[in-house]
Design a protein around this nucleic acid. Sequence first.
RNA 1: GGAGAGGUGGCUGAGUGGCCGAAAGCGGCGGUCUUGAAAACCGUUGAGGGUUUAUCCCCUCCCAGGGUUCGAAUCCCUGCUUCUCCGCCA
Length: 423
Amino acid sequence: MLDPQLFRSDLDSVKLQLDRRSYDFDASAYEALESKRKVVQIKTQELQNERNKSSKGIGQAKAKGEDIQPLLDQVQHLGDQLKQAEAELSEIQQQMTALMEAIPNFLDELVPAGKDEEDNVELSRWGEKPVFSFQPKDHVDLGENKGLDFEIAAKIACARFAVLKGPLARLQRAIIQLMLDTHTAEHEYEETYVPFLVNADSLYGTGQLPKFEEDLFKASSNPDLYLIPTAEVPVTNIVRDSIVDAKQMPLKFVCHTPCFRSEAGAYGRDVRGLIRQHQFEKVELVQIVSAADSEKAHEELTQHAENILQKLKLPYRKVLLCAGDTGFSSSKTYDLEVWLPGQDSYREISSCSNFKDFQARRMQARWRNPETGKPELVHTVNGSGLAAGRTLIAVMENYQDEQGRIHIPEALKPYMTGIEIIE
RNA sequence: GGAGAGGUGGCUGAGUGGCCGAAAGCGGCGGUCUUGAAAACCGUUGAGGGUUUAUCCCCUCCCAGGGUUCGAAUCCCUGCUUCUCCGCCA
């Protein structure tokens, strides 16, 4: 949610900002609603004031033992008028909220113009792509005789699920362990365990609702809960409706969860393999910081995700998303794309975003600034550190040999109880 | 699942229809005292919003949503939630 004050004080710059997003903002509809709001709100508050004064007068008269009947007759007309004004105001406010909550975040000034991922800007590359003396296989072929099974998963559930058995299941767990250990021990994140089902308020807070409900799995039960599409939702909502003590800032959480996505708009895309699944494992990094610190925190958090790729010696590149590819709630996003020999391309393995105060305003998440003594909105920053399912793919494809075996990267060996090669 | 008791400011906690946005204490902030600190004492200290150049003024908020009333933290209904006891359970 954007700052409503800005809409009132400088609508022109709001329009310019939303233009960068190619967001079709109906400024005249907004202005009409806003001027109506002003009139009705003032009228409502005047009526409330009148009621309060009268009631106070009645109380005092009664205490003195005076006859209050004449006073009661006087305020009789107030009730209906007030009720009507309040109803009208509430209707306008609901319309205003509906309008405001559908508007995406402003883009950071450094975000490049562009329509889709073609226009993203590559910032850096790390690592050497492996050179093979044979035609490298993709992870589906490599996993075929090693316990990676999509048919069984489709029998158990449906398409876009996978079953892992034996050393590959072990390898995914090792990857998760490495990430959690690194982020807690070296990057000072607090390990967190959270619900995998969340309520609508939480999804609203981080921006998935109300606009993107079709991307979610809803649990058809009472109370209404949704499967989390990312740990970002439960973890960020830890600070919803609260004022964080300055001494506790910044808050840094790391959390491993499964993630569930309906992939409703992805028919026919990435149908092969583990790339795009309804369920996948991810380790998420979340930071709750002050406005002054969020830019730095965003850079650092991205580096923390990069460190995992570097430990695994997986070649990757860092990309700054263009205007059209930056998510609804995000102000600025870096994607980390890992090299996948089986696909002969870079694929997203982490997405690190600075949301500034956009989520915080939706969540009413604040901290008390000791300089002013006043509560201020926090900034939220998060990123995958990393998507474990895709990391598994990257390890399989980058560490394969001519016999179709998979060599365990050095950094994972301590977690594999002696297994050095999966064959 | 059954029975009972609660949800009030940063925290503890008083308040059962008007003088309550809310006692008292703790904590925070400012000051007096002190070489400095502590203690003691004095003062101050909730959030959001409207109007305004600003001050002023006004509105809303005592878990949430409805209701009763001229008037609700207080009474009624519904929901959520916490705690205690019993049962069941990984």
